[in-house]
Computed example of a mutant assay.
Amino acid sequence: MLNTRHLISFSLAALLISAPTFAQNAAIVNGKSIPKAQLDKLVQKSGQGDNPQVRDQAREMLVTKELILQEADKRGVIQKESVREQLEQSRVGILVAAVFEDYIEKEGVTVAELNAAYESVKTQYTGKEYHIEHILVEKETDAKAIIAQIKAGGNFGEIAKAKSKDPGSATNGGDLGWVNDKALVPEFSKAMVQLKNGQMTDKPVKSQFGWHIIKTVDSRDMKAPSFDELKAELKQMIASDQNWQKAKFTEMMQKLRAKAKVQ
């Protein structure tokens, strides 16, 4: 019979032998290993970060998937003609989408199409844009009191931080950055474009959001970004158009047929 020391040594040896197996597997389902690499990849693709909760959820998904695959094999459903046909249809559908996506990426969007799209987008960058600061309050009386305070020497930015109800700009001293008149509500834009650089509205401006005190810090002519700056965005814009996609798919198939030997 083995003594206690031998039993302990045997147990430790067994653990040391099995440890690497568990380390490289996320789980073992009915003797079938699920590699840890699969779990790592699933966690990464989830975009939820890497933490124990996310790993547990991902591991459960892999275990569920493996159980279904094993049960499908046990029941023989994969051998059914209807199932095999559906699997083949899904496979072909995935490959068609992948081939078309690769075609679009490598040769679908032409330079001429990109240039035409850029010229069209450039027309949107007309007129002026303004560097604006504003203070938003609920009551007209409060707005008038703030205007009087600023005219008496009060600091616009500090007052905006203390009293503005606009959460997006209050912490920045009311600074909205560079905007154009088309991006703002009409009442605000109308008052803004009438101001000179460094000038503030004499009266509060009413909009659906409340009462505004507006200050134009600076203004300039709008300038379109360069072609290179917009190239990726233009390519995505063109490729997302459904009519364009249909035409390009037809074009791709015509090229494939032209090169193929079909008897």
Rank of each mutant, 00 (worst) to 15 (best):
V96K: 14
K190N: 13
L67S: 04
A14P: 00
N243T: 12
V193T: 14
H6Y: 10
E129C: 08
E113C: 00
I28N: 11
Q24V: 14
A37K: 14
L234K: 04
L95A: 15
A258K: 13
L234P: 03
W211F: 12
S226Y: 00
D218Y: 05
F100M: 09
W244P: 03
L230T: 05
A116Y: 07
R59E: 14
A14M: 10
W211E: 00
A170Y: 01
V217S: 05
A170M: 06
Q245T: 00
E158Y: 06
V77I: 15
G210D: 02
W178K: 00
D228P: 05
K74W: 07
F156K: 01
F10P: 04
V262C: 08
T250M: 12
A116I: 07
A58D: 03
K106R: 15
D181F: 10
A58E: 00
K223I: 12
M253D: 09
V99W: 14
Q44G: 07
W244M: 05
V63T: 06
V96H: 11
L184K: 07
E60Y: 08
L234F: 01
E138S: 12
A247D: 13
W211Q: 02
P186M: 00
A116H: 11
A19L: 14
E71L: 07
D50M: 01
K163E: 06
A14I: 10
M192G: 01
K122G: 04
V179W: 02
Q254S: 13
G93E: 14
K122A: 09
K45F: 06
N172H: 02
E101M: 06
Q89A: 15
I28Q: 08
D73A: 11
T4R: 13
N180V: 11
P204V: 01
A152C: 00
Q86G: 13
V137I: 06
E138K: 15
K128Y: 11
L42Q: 05
F10G: 12
A72G: 09
Q149H: 08
K255R: 12
A117L: 07
S207D: 06
K223V: 15
M253S: 10
A247I: 11
M1N: 03
L67A: 04
Q194A: 13
Q124E: 12
D50S: 09
Q79L: 08
D142R: 08
P52V: 03
A152P: 01
I28P: 01
I34A: 09
M61P: 04
G174Y: 02
T250E: 15
K255L: 08
L256I: 13
A19Q: 08
Y118W: 13
G47V: 10
L62G: 06
Q79W: 04
E233C: 09
Y125I: 08
D202E: 08
Q263G: 10
K74C: 04
T110L: 05
V205P: 04
I213D: 01
R257W: 11
Q70D: 06
K206A: 06
S169F: 02
K165W: 00
N30V: 11
D218I: 03
R55A: 06
E71D: 07
E105F: 10
L62I: 00
D166M: 04
D73H: 10
Q124H: 13
V92S: 02
R55Y: 09
D228Y: 07
R91A: 14
V29A: 02
K36N: 13
D40P: 03
E101L: 05
S169D: 00
A27C: 09
A97E: 14
G168Y: 10
E107W: 07
K203Q: 11
A116P: 07
A19R: 13
K246Q: 14
